[in-house]
Design a protein around this nucleic acid. Structure first.
Lengths: 150, 150
DNA sequence: TTCCTTAGTTCCTTTAGGAGACTCTGTGAC
DNA sequence: GTCACAGAGTCTCCTAAAGGAACTAAGGAA
């Protein structure tokens, strides 16, 4: 439903949700990242209603996360990640890490991630951009920033 | 709406969405993390409908992300992060990082993060748990894992 | 000319979110 | 004792969004 407009809030979490917070959006992004870039592919893989898929794709294109581009002289289009969208994949990888740890159960993770730099199966981990040490809930303090609400 | 059950999919992203993918859930988590732990505080801060807040809190408690505990001899309760929930804060921090970069505009970030280890205002960054190098959309390959669907 | 494929629209039903009034339970005040 | 109060939810009504399935449109191929 989400009639409330998260985009207006003075909070980067809420604003990010305004872009990819709707149901299905992260899964659409995942599929595009994985190489499923066409309407029919997405619809078939996700089992999403065509109406909702249309709405989500339009929304993601409007927000600059995906780019819609023709791949044929017939009216055929594919959706690809923009730079802005590619950076959202970080978010997906953190979701994967948490889901793998807490929800995968005995079967183990459904997907593995091979890191090019080291050639190993690995996973993403959050570290401080400044000192490189781990950065988690318990070791940060929140302070009001310049864009804080009055 | 979300009649589709993401929790059944063989995908850690979908499963994670099943826990915190509903509208408002990440913002509830954010507030609890920031120290707003009571029903009335959450309702007032978020402007969320009381009905929906009740549903979200129950869901998050069921999934083991929050713990509901009494803080008075009267029937008064507060919600606190479990270990499982605290690890979801990583996800929030990645959302913050993306929102700060792409959506904050000229006003700058609404909230700043002080990292205890180095004492600096910083932000989270995704790195490979194995080699410590940056890990992003462009430098990983996806492979089927043990829990992949048949 | 007809068929096929891809990429959507349209319409209808079901379900979830928003708003606000109402309830319930202990306490402390009088 | 009973009264008012505060916190933490319920309840009800309305509207908007998701699901599903059938329909449309635009080229190209047979």
């Amino acid at each position: 439903m989400q009639r409330t407009n998260f985009g207006e809030m003075a909070c980067s979490i809420a604003r990010t949700l305004d872009v990819i917070g709707e149901p299905w959006s992260p899964l659409v992004l995942r599929d595009v990242w994985a190489g499923l870039t066409r309407f029919e592919q997405l619809q078939a893989d996700l089992g999403i209603s065509r109406k909702v898929l249309t709405e989500r794709l339009n929304h993601l294109v409007e927000r600059g996360v995906l780019e819609r581009r023709p791949y044929d002289r017939r009216p055929r289009y594919e959706y690809v990640l923009t730079d802005k969208g590619a950076e959202l994949v970080d978010l997906l990888m953190v979701m994967v890490r948490w889901g793998d740890k807490w929800l995968a159960g005995d079967a183990g993770p459904p997907v593995l991630y091979l890191h090019h730099a080291c050639g190993e199966i690995s996973r993403g981990e959050l570290r401080c951009a400044h000192c490189g040490e781990p950065m988690h809930a318990g070791n940060v303090d929140l302070l009001p920033g310049p864009g804080a609400a009055a």
